[in-house]
């Protein structure tokens, strides 16, 4: 029974109620986080990614520093990041294009993680609120989204139900 495939394009009909509920709750929590991160940046005229980019350490820091050095690029990054976060948050909460939102969220989190990896040798300007070595909250959220990607719920609870879950 568990292995029964969904009638729709996504395999999400084999969950128990409890499993489905928790997948949706996890999706909503991450969606809320993304949406508020996005909205708070959109509402703050002084927000810019430049400090974050300049503070980058580790293997990819050169790439992030050169992004910060280009004012036009910084403006684009600011726009894409703030509105991207909000859009991903909305997608996860409403369950609209959930799989795309999930992947996009993973891409952003991968950028955050790679720009500020919690290495043994890294010290950052922003003090972190916890203690991290190699694994930090960005990485955990990244893995959580990966789980959500593999166990989709949007076409059961979410607007995707209207899009992907219909049979002719």
């Amino acid at each position: 029974m568990f292995k029964e495939k969904s009638a729709g394009p996504l395999p999400c009909e084999g969950y128990s109620n409890a499993q489905l509920s928790m997948l949706v709750i996890l999706r909503l929590a991450i969606g809320w986080h993304f949406l508020y991160e996005g909205i708070s940046k959109i509402l703050n005229p002084n927000w810019s990614s430049i400090g974050f980019l300049l503070d980058s350490k580790g293997l990819f820091s050169g790439m992030f520093h050169s992004m910060a050095a280009n004012p036009d690029l910084v403006n684009s990054i600011d726009f894409l990041n703030a509105w991207g976060l909000a859009a991903i948050g909305l997608g996860l909460i409403t369950g609209l294009l959930t799989q795309i939102a999930t992947l996009a969220g993973m891409v952003l989190l991968a950028f955050y993680y790679l720009s500020h990896p919690p290495l043994i040798t890294s010290e950052y300007a922003i003090p972190s609120e916890g203690s991290y070595l190699w694994v930090n909250k960005n990485l955990i959220e990244f893995f959580a989204l990966w789980v959500l990607f593999l166990f989709p719920s949007g076409n059961r609870i979410g607007l995707d139900r209207f899009i992907f879950n219909r049979k002719k």
Partner: peptide
């Protein structure tokens, strides 16, 4: 079910 999460 499709609109279940919108109140959030």
């Amino acid at each position: 079910k499709g609109l279940a999460t919108l109140p959030l």
